[in-house]
């Protein structure tokens, strides 16, 4: 068992090495050692801990993890929209050749939507009820493109609506006149208005029925190809995600515990938590036997020492209770944060 796990030899630790991944084009998004803490009354909650990953243009990353594992926090940190009591403690977010962490507030405001777009969790309530959809698209364009002519703004909005398969008449409508799926599409249309290099969609399908879920995912897929953006899809539904993304990242208690391609993740997950996630997916062979993950997700305020997952881990070793595992890149290019893959384990 151990030998099978160890067949991938780890190479370097620390994340600087991770961004210098050998193959593939120049990354369009580099997230380095991102760290976010919420200073709550009950204490400090480290919601993001040393999170690093890279994405190339046209690449799609699925971000999964239990509720509260820090997925939305990661997205908000990348947008530099963490609000008090939260604070970005460390790390860098680089889009193209712009280091977002170094921008002043006004430059960051301009970077939102034009370089990096966020399609929020809960698109149902993300549209202003008293403004027409069109007005909410136009103001977004206007705030980034000073002096753009009316007709050119209009064309841009019309094109975005068309890209997400919405009728041009939606432009004159109000949010309450749209279905949930249509609202989600409007949010996507707004997200692609300025052809950003990175699009983050936070649970874009969670409030939709299965048919609409697929349509929305296909829409994201199509517009993503159209503007060749890097996409981060946050969600819980591994099955749905598997059909659309290239890579899957698994978060646990604020850390990225594994980043692998979809194929690798589904056929040979490395991290014990990722394995548990995959084996808890229903399939025809284990029909009726629902396999959950024993134990509860830990409170960020009282994280277990060492590896946060060790109390629930079936492979836990002595070292897991005492020492925090490093982020490691295996020879195959997969990233795993687990002592099982230490050279000397």
């Amino acid at each position: 068992m151990m030998s099978e796990v160890l067949s991938d030899r780890p190479t370097t630790s620390r994340t600087s090495a991770l961004s210098a991944r050998p193959s593939g084009p120049e990354p369009v998004l580099r997230v380095q050692n991102l760290e976010v803490t919420y200073y709550t009354d009950a204490g400090r909650a480290k919601a993001l801990d040393d999170v690093s990953f890279t994405l190339s243009a046209g690449e799609k990353l699925g971000m999964v993890g239990e509720s509260g594992s820090g997925k939305s926090t990661l997205a908000l940190a990348m947008m530099r929209m963490i609000k008090p009591p939260g604070r970005i403690e460390a790390g860098r977010v680089i889009v193209g050749d712009t280091d977002l962490t170094g921008l002043d507030d006004d430059a960051m405001r301009k970077a939102r939507l034009s370089k990096i777009a966020y399609i929020p969790q809960g698109a149902m309530n993300s549209l202003n009820p008293v403004m027409r959809i069109g007005a909410q698209m136009v103001d977004a364009v206007k705030s980034h493109m000073n002096g753009e002519s009316r007709s050119s703004i209009g064309d841009r909005c019309a094109h975005a609506l068309k890209s997400v398969d919405l009728d041009a008449s939606v432009f004159r409508m109000y949010a309450h006149e749209l279905s949930g799926g249509m609202k989600q599409r409007v949010c996507i249309a707004i997200g692609i208005l300025l052809n950003p290099q990175v699009i983050i969609a936070d649970e874009p399908t969670s409030a939709l029925d299965v048919v609409t879920q697929r349509q929305v995912m296909e829409t994201i897929d199509r517009v993503q190809k159209e503007i060749n953006a890097a996409v981060i899809l946050i969600g819980h539904d591994m099955g749905l995600m598997a059909q659309f993304v290239d890579k899957v990242a698994v978060m646990y208690a604020g850390r990225l515990v594994e980043v692998s391609t979809v194929r690798e993740m589904f056929t040979d997950p490395k991290h014990p938590y990722a394995r548990a996630l995959i084996s808890s997916l229903p399939n025809l062979d284990n029909k009726g036997v629902f396999q959950g993950i024993p134990g509860l997700a830990p409170s960020l305020l009282r994280l277990p020492t060492g590896c946060a997952f060790h109390p629930r881990c079936t492979h836990a070793m002595d070292i897991c209770g005492t020492t925090r595992p490093e982020v490691r890149m295996l020879a195959s290019g997969r990233v795993v944060t687990c002592h099982l893959f230490n050279e000397e384990a």
């Binding site: 929209m81 405001r109 939102r112 698109a123 202003n128 009820p129 008293v130 103001d139 977004a140």
Partner: peptide, 28 residues
């Protein structure tokens, strides 16, 4: 509200968010 947050994600300036997304709804 989500729409106020989304307005900020869109990169709108503070005055527009205050006036069009926040104040208008709070005034109803």
């Amino acid at each position: 509200e989500d729409y106020v947050n989304f307005a900020e994600h869109k990169g709108l300036d503070g005055v527009s968010i205050f006036r069009d997304y926040y104040l208008r709804n709070a005034l109803l």
